[in-house]
């Protein structure tokens, strides 16, 4: 097991960053206004839904192989917004899921999103379905859905591995507008090559704040940026410390962050 006592410096940073995020969340809840930059990939959601409406073809949402965790729940938050937008225009949606635990939550989210959009009667229980928890069985099921249904828009958010390119290229083949985002950095090049918009890195976690503009989420996002600034400062200071020969690798700051 890994414990804080194995590396107190890292544990201290985790605790400090947690406090920073909580402080910015509380200040945002108390009315402090925060602005966030434009994220083109998230702006493209409305464009993709509009195009699906014009074409009269379904919208596909895939949470990848995400389990019921932060990545999967974040994907469902983004999908919830897409569904509310799609419900207003009467678009048909499809959501194949690979993880049975996430499937149960996804079904609830879709039902509630239709209710929130004022169209509870439009919810189709067969629109959210469990396919398989085997990677390539799931991939073949999703690729088949893309080709059979000729989806107009495809949203790929969550954990993706080797199957990412199968989904993205299948979408390309049927001419779907595609928006993707994943925390798996090894899959980002495939999405960038095949999708119209790709959400990179921590933009994925910024999505719920960007879409909802909730003060709590905006505050959290600002806290994340402060932590990233601190990380950058540590990298710069570490580089300088290592570059100044008299300090050497025995310097306490370098020692702190050296992997032993």
């Amino acid at each position: 097991m890994t414990h804080a006592s194995d590396k107190w410096e890292a544990a201290f940073l985790v605790a400090l960053w947690s406090i920073i995020v909580l402080v910015t969340v509380i200040t945002a809840q108390r009315g402090k206004k925060y602005l966030i930059r434009r994220i083109p990939g998230l702006n493209a959601i409305d464009e993709a839904v509009g195009r699906a409406t014009e074409m009269g073809r379904p919208i596909l949402m895939v949470p990848g192989l995400s389990a019921l965790g932060v990545v999967g729940l974040q994907a469902l938050t983004i999908f919830s917004y897409i569904i509310k937008t799609a419900a207003k225009f009467g678009n048909r949606i499809l959501m194949p899921v690979a993880d049975p635990a996430l499937y149960t939550v996804a079904e609830e989210v879709v039902r509630e999103s239709y209710a929130a959009a004022g169209r509870p009667e439009d919810f189709d229980p067969t629109s959210v379905y469990f396919l398989s928890d085997r990677q390539f069985a799931f991939a073949s099921g999703v690729a088949g859905t893309i080709h059979r249904e000729k989806v107009a828009a495809s949203f790929l958010f969550g954990d993706f591995f080797a199957e990412s390119l199968i989904f993205a290229e299948s979408g390309q083949q049927v001419g779907a507008i595609q928006v993707a985002g994943t925390v798996q950095t090894t899959q980002l090049p495939f999405f960038i090559a095949s999708c119209d918009y790709t959400i990179i890195g921590d933009e994925y976690y910024a999505a719920s704040a960007y879409i909802s503009r909730e003060p709590t989420l905006l505050g959290s996002l600002v806290g994340q940026d402060i932590c990233k600034g601190m990380m950058l400062l540590i990298v710069v200071l570490g580089t300088l410390a290592l570059s100044i020969k008299p300090l050497g690798d025995k310097f306490f700051f370098v020692q702190w962050f050296t992997i032993k």
Partner: peptide, 10 residues
Amino acid sequence: FGLGIGGLAI
């Protein structure tokens, strides 16, 4: 790094 901090926040 960005993902790690984002994961911690969420």
